[in-house]
Design a protein around this nucleic acid. Structure first.
Lengths: 342, 342
DNA sequence: GTGAAAGCGCTAACAG
DNA sequence: CTGTTAGCGCTTTCAC
């Protein structure tokens, strides 16, 4: 069913039908009703492709995700969708599937660059009005999106080149968590860091140091142990920290998996959590809802990050914003029962 | 940059450029190379919208998900993407966001029907060549997709009306799990069911009964307790089952959350898992990787379900398949250490 | 081998 | 108020 057929059935011109459809002014009530009746009867649906072609505007945004199966991605997408839907935009999802590609083959980044270029080609070919790039880790994306003359927003990552970004705060929440320990009288700290070079690791570390400095407490170098974000290394790291006479009473793990690992390490060493050793995590992952005691953690504003990314993109697309903006959204501290008075 | 501009620069007609682009026969080597050079230089990208309009085929499939934040959805999408990408199709994601809508307002299904109709309108308006509907629960979807003259595949759900479906097996894996208990000498069983009316609950129950009947063992009615898939009720249910003299030595929980709840209940009652009571779960959820002991569970073929859905859809779209097909994919048993010899 | 031209379904001047 | 018409970028038939 096309606009033309509707026009024939209604005995009017295509223009008139188009006017009714977009109620763009000046159609007599009778004509309008007659046309609308036929539209309803026939179940006519306008061809968005044709419309986009003609208007040179697709109301489509490309959502280019590094990997849709990485936990936070779905929530970010959800946030994007929420605002997009409100504003009459639709999303076309392009999934780079980096996780499985990296795991299955030891190929160089250049291989992925090709994939990315192809994904961008398709998205641009689809005439998207803008692109939101959703990272699988929070890090700098370096010159990876080429030949795009449309607005780009980076979410859960950022770029030093062109393009706005939306991230979450690391330093402040880790500072606040550290303060919780301090307020409870803790003086000896152990830190289970994330992976070496990771951006969040550095930022969270800064938050910890900030709070400790304020309190005039120093962190022993040997009490900072490097993990890889995984349960196992978290447990191992905690064992190193706790298996000595003067073990720290406060353990700050940089994510929940490692925090749960630390809790289990404590249990194995016969230490009670939080009475003997207090522990904090980061991420508000599902696991901690089943861990006893409930571990105090930090919740990232994932949905909101998607929402804000879409908001930024809308502003860019509608020329209400010319320069790039980098937004950092605050996190929420989720109180558990894993930090006790000292 | 349009095809026409390329034509001008190359000093040929638009037709020729089109021929080169699609290498549809008969273009002299020299012309071809000249055109290709310009295409490369200019970074020309063909307008997929225009192409689709002209060919009346979009190479777009609509992925209509009930809620993208429901854990399995991302994996299903990933599977869909994997095959779609291989076959030159792209996905447009429509997220009904049912989870938050249901939680935030007590509105009737008719409200959602409107949302669904709208989503379908948009998808069809985008001229998708087919639709994959991804459920948030495994259940029958009743007459909810109207006015679609394109192929539809239901994934993680099914329909009694038109449309193929891809689901995972419930009965067989639960049968196999039950056999594991039996092989370990268990004779007294307790079952923590899922929500009352749920399809998977019924099917899994059938699997359990099948194995027990085979073994000539009967299941006491009072040893079947109804849960709601959540940790808390799992724990509560397990307490009912275990807090008596002749408690069952085998507890089959119908998902992992409840299984972990059961494990904690056992611990609180001073029972060791698996020595005093053996436990199984279902889903292969993240949580069980941190639970001690590792709980024996069932992994659903989520990615594969997406992949198979796309495969079915491709066959339908290319007229290689006329009748509806309902596929049930097998699950995998994930061995843990939560079932001991009796 | 290559080009002219029609037309996919729609919008938006412009004319009446 | 309504209709005519050009044209968005592309494919494809038919001529040459």
């Amino acid at each position: 069913m096309t606009l033309k057929e509707i026009a024939v059935q209604a005995g009017v011109s295509v223009a008139t039908v188009s006017y009714v459809l977009n109620d763009s002014a000046k159609v007599s009530i009778e004509t309008k009703e007659r046309v609308e009746k036929i539209i309803k009867e026939t179940g006519y649906r306008s061809n968005i492709l044709a419309k986009s072609l003609r208007k040179n505007k697709s109301f489509l945004v490309g959502v280019l995700v590094e990997d849709v199966t990485v936990w936070h991605t779905a929530f970010v997408i959800d946030g994007i969708n929420e605002l997009a839907e409100k504003k009459g935009y639709h999303t076309i999802l392009s999934n780079l599937r980096l996780l499985s590609k990296i795991e299955s083959q030891f190929e160089h980044i250049s291989k992925f660059q090709k994939d990315i270029d192809k994904a961008v080609d398709v998205l641009m070919g689809m005439q998207v009005d803008g692109i939101i790039y959703v990272g699988m880790h929070d890090r700098a994306i370096h010159d990876i999106l080429h030949n795009i003359e449309k607005p780009v927003v980076y979410c859960y990552c950022y770029t030093e080149g062109e393009g706005s970004s939306v991230r979450y705060s690391n330093k402040t929440p880790e500072y606040l968590i550290t303060r919780k320990f301090l307020e409870n009288g803790h003086k000896e700290f152990g830190v289970i860091r994330g992976a070496e070079a990771s951006e969040p690791t550095k930022l969270r570390m800064q938050g910890i140091e900030w709070a400790l400095e304020e309190a005039g407490i120093s962190l022993k170098k040997e009490n900072i142990v490097c993990g890889d974000w995984k349960y196992k290394q978290g447990k191992q790291a905690a064992k190193m920290l706790l298996d000595k006479q003067d073990y720290p009473s406060a353990i700050i793990a940089m994510n929940d998996e490692m925090a749960v690992g630390a809790r289990d390490a404590a249990a194995e060493l016969g230490l009670r959590v939080p009475e003997d050793v207090s522990i904090s995590g980061f991420d508000n992952a599902d696991i901690i809802h089943y861990a006893t005691p409930r571990i105090t953690t930090v919740s990232r504003p994932l949905q909101e990050m998607g929402y804000e990314s879409m908001k930024l993109l809308l502003n860019k697309m509608n020329d209400r914003l010319s320069e790039d903006i980098n937004i950092t959204l605050p996190c929420e501290i989720i109180e558990g029962r894993s930090i006790a008075k000292r």
